[in-house]
Nucleic acid binder design. Structure first.
Lengths: 337, 337
DNA sequence: ACTTGGCACTCGGGAACACAGAGTGCCAGA
DNA sequence: TCTGGCACTCTGTGTTCCCGAGTGCCAAGT
């Protein structure tokens, strides 16, 4: 149904269209790629490809443009991920290595990805549910007010102010802190709810109301909110690339945390690439854009995801290479800190 | 030189141009505002205004458009800041009150400002140098590694991982922590460097190398980096408003922290409004945009600044009202938490 | 059964042109 | 000092026209 030459034609169309941003015709194709056949033959192949929905013409008698389905086939079967150059790898390494805390790692990763791919970069903070507790701190602020600070093994720090039902002395706080840390240290955050249930029993009865308040805030912090914190950058690149659809819709989508998270998609294997092309992605305002995403993590555990968003007409092999490489390096950095 | 009627004409031109986005002619002016004179008279006035550089015509025989100088005069002398409606005030209050920590306050403020003004909102985190220490925490992570956590009175939490020159036991850490807090608690961050100088003397000699390491990281955290953390949002509004110049330049400017900070400008009085119009602002990529900014803080101390950025052709009275109101509310919220 | 050259056809986009409409500047008169 | 009148100057829009790129189809060649 699709013989080798037709596939080669499709590949050539995608490549040419990506690089020129103009519908590509049969003559231009045989000129730029040595396919060894005449334009007329190519035209027949193109007719077949169009018949099956891989390419389309904007109007009669213009060249052909790949459809989402065409890009999909290209990504799945016709292209190879392009590895980064040595210089680029080194640049990544030194750039990321300079970061001193998680915030900065994430921020730098966004810049890096945006610069490398010349597209919009999206990076998710290491997911809370997939991290574990490194330390819990209770800091007295006033007589009946403390700050609860939660530090995870991935370097995330969550803080919340807690109003207590009664005044409580420093020694009792110290005790509470000790018990909390004894129970929770190293505990996966998803197991915190169960683990926490035992804690009141270990405390003197008079501390239990206070502990209950603190624990409920702790659980709230873990579950309710912040669950996924996500950051993007490089929107200037969008303005340059002319989207088929309005730039406005895209910017709106980017500012919706929820949409953004869904965009990165569910986890595949670690640093396995997910590509969502045009209409494949779950938000209608983003027809005309594609997402290339990968998970990152330390060891064999996926902590969160990152990726880029750009026009459907993007250079997939290069973009995929960059995303994969950055995901790996970020994983390494996180493991090392 | 500029009699009352000419000023009225300028005001009318600004108002009409802002609302219609089209050059405004003499006839349209007398129709929409009852100026009590004929178009011909207005034309004379317009000629005078143009002569002095307050308005200009895009081409011969089109209407007039205000120049930056014209907007400036309008803002300074011809307009009154428009207060928000009661409903808007209440909306602000409830929206901001729902925030649980500083990150969320800032994030919500950005959204709020963007929504209220339909422009790009820019909010600076409470400046470190203008805050004071509420608590310093040293958390042991490994034998020779601790995490230093600094909590300010404005709710900012800075953390840094510190590699120590030697292993150190929990008791010695506790002592260190106690001394640190005793010295630094309530200390203005700008005074920290001097205060910290005394600390090694108060410690047993064997702890001094470790303390020195930790203190140097602490100082680094305060000075070097992060100094000003800044966040923006609402870029989708930019895409709708058609800038005279490329949207790309504006997005690029927004992603440059340094530019962004300079944009908000130096402090005036607390919640005193700063308006930078078009060519007045310090970055050439932002010709065609104006910035309306204000300081916010708790009590009488300005902690940082916030504002919006939009096309020069913006509704200044409304925008200024919104920025001022939001700045005040944010100040209140910070004071209360 | 493919491939190829030839050919007529289609359609978008740019150039040339005319035209209406909005707006101006200026002048003479109230 | 204001006003009505008038001639003038543009821009933007619509129309028409034509070129060229690209197509689909067909008949002939391998």
């Amino acid at each position: 149904m699709l013989d080798d030459r037709k596939l080669a034609v499709l590949r050539a169309i995608v490549e040419d269209y990506v690089s020129t941003n103009e519908p590509v015709g049969s003559k231009a194709l045989v000129d730029r790629h040595n396919l060894g056949v005449s334009p007329a033959t190519i035209r027949n192949d193109m007719a077949a490809l169009e018949e099956q929905g891989y390419i389309t013409q904007p109007h009669t008698s213009a060249g052909r443009v790949p459809t989402d389905k065409g890009y999909r086939l290209f990504v799945d079967r016709l292209s190879q991920i392009k590895p980064l150059s040595g210089a680029e790898r080194r640049a990544i390494e030194t750039f990321l290595a300079g970061a001193v805390d998680l915030d900065e790692i994430v921020m730098r990763t966004v810049r890096l990805l945006a610069q490398l791919t010349r597209q919009v970069a999206v990076v998710q903070y290491p997911s809370l549910t997939r991290s574990s507790v490194r330390h819990v701190e209770i800091v007295p602020l006033a007589e009946r007010r403390v700050m609860l600070v939660l530090i995870t093994n991935t370097g995330r720090v969550e803080q919340r102010v807690v109003d207590l039902p009664e005044a409580i002395g420093d020694d009792r706080i110290a005790n509470l802190r000790a018990v909390l840390n004894a129970c929770l240290d190293g505990c996966g955050l998803s197991q915190v709810p169960e683990t926490v249930a035992d804690i009141p029993e270990r405390l003197p009865p008079e501390d239990r109301p206070v502990a209950a308040t603190i624990l409920s805030v702790l659980l709230e912090t873990l579950v309710e909110r912040h669950e996924e914190k996500i950051v993007f950058g490089g929107t200037a690149n969008l303005a340059a690339a002319d989207l088929s659809i309005g730039l406005r819709d895209v910017l709106e989508a980017l500012e919706e945390q929820v949409v953004l998270i869904r965009l990165l998609g569910e986890t595949g294997g670690l640093s396995e690439l997910t590509v969502r092309i045009g209409s494949e992605n779950p938000y209608s305002g983003l027809r005309g854009t594609s997402i290339v995403a990968a998970g990152y993590g330390s060891g064999d555990r996926e902590l969160a995801r990152l990726g880029v968003l750009g026009p459907t007409r993007m250079d997939y092999p290069v973009t995929m290479g960059a995303v994969r490489a950055v995901a790996r390096y970020v994983g390494q950095i996180l493991a090392g800190s």
